[in-house]
Amino acid sequence: MLFVNDQLRSPSPDAWVGADMTDVHSYPLPRNPEHQAGKAMVLGEFGGIGVPVEGHLWNDLVAGWGYDGVVTPLMMQKQYTAMVDSLKVLEELGLSASIYTQPFDVESEQNGIMTYDRSIIKLPVAVIRNIHQKLWPTTANYVVATKGFSAVVADTINKSYAVVLEEFNKGRKDSAFLRKVALMAQKIAICKLQQERRMNI
């Protein structure tokens, strides 16, 4: 079953016949699937927080998206933390497993933990680890598991834009650069509009 913004999008009367689990996909907020005796309760997908990272998009001409709008990495951290807090409550109500959507951006879906090219992580590993400690105690093999892993931490859209704007103010005006400035300004404007809408809900 698929829920988007708490609205059931794809009802199925026999969704889990013959299954060992009940499953639900819920965007953006987590929820428990239907309880059925003897079956594990799984949240197969949740989340979808959109964070575009300039220079690491699948196609900068295509407007990216996320189920929870398009936000900055700091906003993503707050939203992701709230989602994990919800998972703890759902776990106490019987949730067996959950999967955040998604590990990487996929084309215009900018809701990955990492960018499309896998070179930028939107939330630092240490931050993710601290958030997840609410669900799983720190393991002794954390250092071993993360050995050799590296990724650049995402900059916020506004900081990147400030750097580009400074170049513009210093006189850079080639057409490719102007296109980049215009696209970044448009994305920032869209992000601000989405933030305002969320605040007014």
Score class of each variant (00 low, 15 high):
71 V>W: 09
140 A>P: 04
142 Y>F: 13
76 M>T: 04
147 K>M: 07
172 R>F: 06
117 D>V: 04
189 A>Y: 08
19 A>M: 00
120 I>N: 00
109 E>K: 03
121 I>C: 06
10 S>N: 12
35 H>Y: 13
99 I>E: 11
201 I>W: 12
197 R>K: 00
187 K>M: 09
61 L>K: 09
12 S>C: 08
154 A>C: 06
96 S>G: 01
55 G>P: 07
147 K>I: 08
143 V>F: 08
170 K>E: 11
166 E>H: 04
163 V>S: 05
92 E>M: 13
28 P>V: 06
54 E>A: 06
141 N>I: 11
188 I>C: 00
14 D>G: 06
50 G>Q: 01
144 V>W: 11
41 M>T: 06
182 A>N: 09
133 Q>K: 14
160 S>I: 03
138 T>Y: 11
133 Q>T: 15
7 Q>N: 10
39 K>A: 03
28 P>N: 08
70 V>Q: 11
75 M>H: 12
28 P>D: 09
168 F>I: 11
22 T>D: 09
67 Y>K: 03
125 V>S: 09
116 Y>T: 02
4 V>D: 13
131 I>T: 12
80 Y>K: 05
14 D>P: 05
200 N>T: 14
152 V>Y: 11
90 L>F: 15
151 A>C: 08
169 N>R: 03
148 G>Q: 00
180 K>M: 11
115 T>P: 03
64 G>W: 04
5 N>Y: 14
162 A>C: 01
163 V>P: 04
134 K>Y: 10
126 A>I: 13
33 P>G: 01
87 L>W: 09
132 H>E: 14
74 L>Q: 15
183 L>Q: 10
46 F>T: 01
8 L>H: 05
37 A>F: 08
29 L>I: 08
44 G>A: 01
161 Y>C: 02
98 S>F: 15
10 S>I: 13
193 L>C: 07
119 S>G: 10
182 A>R: 01
14 D>K: 07
73 P>I: 11
172 R>M: 04
179 R>G: 07
181 V>T: 06
168 F>K: 06
108 S>L: 13
52 P>K: 02
114 M>A: 09
50 G>Y: 15
60 D>S: 00
46 F>E: 02
116 Y>L: 05
174 D>Y: 02
201 I>N: 10
29 L>V: 12
19 A>K: 11
36 Q>C: 03
138 T>V: 12
164 V>L: 08
81 T>C: 11
121 I>W: 07
5 N>D: 15
152 V>T: 15
83 M>E: 08
69 G>L: 14
